[in-house]
Write a protein that binds this DNA or RNA. Structure first.
Lengths: 356, 356
DNA sequence: CGCCATAGGGTATACGTATACGCATAATAT
DNA sequence: ATATTATGCGTATACGTATACCCTATGGCG
């Protein structure tokens, strides 16, 4: 008995102690202007003393606002279900923090693409809005997005901003990043640049990166060779397979731009097994700058996406949409991180230049 | 107007359509025995047609059960705040999935150690229980745990099971894993084994791993040398610093057991810079088997924790505690993953054996 | 044939908060 | 000095569900 947790104090308890009515407590704590400074201060003091916190459920029920955002990971169904794209995991941190800063809770759910859409619908009931994250087959979830729009659900998604998408999108400047990658490879003298990553409209982001690469090549007077493109989804195995297929092809190449670091890592494995040296024989650039990129051998040049900015922007945009404020699409710049996989002596030299 | 989303349907709506009262709808959908099969089927059909979902807030408010678990990450305050221990991130996936399977929502929040504990208390209002995850200064949050217990909050934490802890703990068999690491190093002929990781009671898990190592050494007739132990927290930089300090010391060593892969990776960088070859001059073992462990050069031998099992067990234990079912501490075995960093020819040889 | 148990479901109400109103009092305007 | 408005707060009620309690009809039993 002794120090009973005295149940959970309610706004009535603190109202009683403050000598006011329950609604006044509610008003005071929510910052209403129609409560005097003295009263408010008193109420806040008592609330603190009692360790009082507003009951989230009651509050949400009454106000019809949950102050919760839902984060939906879409994954391609992968055999190894525990492997999550590291890039999105890094974004999780910044999203969480931004939510906390805004006083929002974050609900998490993972979702296999093929699963019942009902889950997302439920999530929309438990939260004020949804953040959609995930690579994967884009077409597959287009209809689902339409469904969301139809139901008036508020959501933002991470993805390709360039295409005329459904709903609000925040994403990296994939075309610009592709250009940077291409320009860098050209600068170190490479001419035959391969691209590993889905270039169909099933993966608009990868397509954008490829477009950027092509643009950079054309700007340098080069002609992108479609035979040097291989489809790949964002996984090591897929990268390995794509690179293997590339090696089996007839077209010679002296550089690879991989649509993600995971693809690049897989490709590096294939190249190493084939006895090719990097960057001497083949220079390689990835995308994302996952932690592993600085651990590979050689360390991987890559394009770093601004994950911290991404989290902030996503939450920001979603809240704006929830509060019916105007929002426009936002694009985040990517930054080239130079590492060993493209480090050759001098700015020319190409595949002929000896490294030492 | 046309196909108005017709607002959100309530249990009254579907009760009206089914020709029953609202409570009957509630009973039917919650699986109460006192509603006939026919009525239930009818109600379920109508509910599905209207896309009805139970209002989480109202339900929680009335029943005082939120059907939500909170996941609290504790981090040591790090300058680079975006870096989250990869190991815990992998666990996130399995926890999420397990929650979903049990019909629970998962609320996420990251928490700097030094932050106001009040936040966690609030979480206890929003969830039925808390899962605590995080390396970090253990002493620092002991008092906070006591606070939780005092308030009757249900929680589980991931950590060292061996110590007489507060609250319910699920964790790997750190002592056993340390023994495995030691035995393996001894088996390949190493005698002077260093340990990188906090061996104080600020980090019980690391201490357990060290204890295991010492046990294995003693079992082989070796005497653990305290001069070969260096404190380190789980980060690459800390590992680098610890290894550097070790190299500066007078004691020779031919093997390192690092308390985490991140530490090991940092240490490998220091060794490489010092011109030492692995495993020839120094064999090294990490802990966790993060994805990066298979990418280092040489690839890193490590002890894999059963993350999938961990997620399941954590959720399982927490639910048991919430439902006042009896639970006991659970220990998960770790598995030795042999890679290049301990791969020497033959089972003896030590630092003298040439690799080729 | 009367009694009681049981199935099936209705009635009333509570969960804790937020908000629409209304009503004083005090501060202005006229 | 009266009409007007703002200030500060209380009264009443709604949010959507779950549960305690009560009631009716049926069937089994003696």
């Amino acid at each position: 008995m002794g120090r009973q947790p005295s149940a959970k104090p309610t706004s009535f308890d603190i109202a009683y102690l403050a000598g006011v009515s329950q609604p006044t407590v509610s008003r005071a704590l929510r910052g209403s202007k129609s409560v005097s400074a003295a009263t408010r201060a008193n109420i806040e003091r008592i609330a603190r003393e009692l360790n009082y916190t507003v009951d989230k459920n009651a509050s949400s029920l009454r106000s019809q606002r949950t102050h919760t955002l839902a984060l939906l990971f879409f994954e391609d169904p992968t055999p190894d279900e525990s492997m999550i794209n590291p890039f999105f995991l890094s974004m999780l941190g910044s999203i969480t923090r931004e939510c906390a800063r805004r006083g929002y809770d974050l609900l998490i759910s993972f979702q296999q693409m093929h699963n019942d859409w009902h889950v997302a619908y439920q999530d929309s009931h438990r939260s004020d809005g949804i953040i959609l994250l995930g690579y994967g087959d884009y077409q597959l979830y287009l209809t689902k997005l339409e469904h969301l729009v139809e139901m008036g659900t508020k959501f933002v998604r991470w993805g390709s901003v360039s295409e005329e998408g459904i709903g609000l999108t925040v994403g990296s400047d994939n075309v610009g990043a592709g250009e940077q990658a291409g320009a860098h490879l050209i600068e170190i003298g490479r001419r035959n640049i391969a691209f590993l990553g889905d270039a169909s409209d099933h993966a608009p982001e990868f397509q954008d990166r490829y477009d950027g690469l092509c643009r950079a090549m054309r700007a340098a007077g080069l002609d992108p060779d479609p035979a040097l493109q291989r489809d790949a989804v964002s996984s090591e195995d897929s990268g390995y397979a794509a690179a293997t297929s590339l090696l089996a092809g007839a077209q010679p190449f002296d550089a690879i731009f991989a649509a993600s670091d995971l693809i690049a890592i897989g490709a590096m494995r294939a190249l190493t097994e084939a006895g090719l040296r990097m960057p001497h024989d083949v220079a390689i650039i990835g995308f994302d700058d996952i932690p592993a990129a600085s651990l590979t051998s050689p360390t991987l040049t890559t394009l770093m996406q601004d994950m911290k900015g991404a989290g902030t922007l996503l939450v920001d945009a979603l809240l704006a949409r929830i509060e019916d404020r105007p929002v426009e699409q936002r694009i985040l710049p990517a930054r080239l991180i130079r590492r060993q996989s493209t480090a050759v002596q001098g700015s020319s030299g190409g595949r002929l230049g000896a490294v030492f």
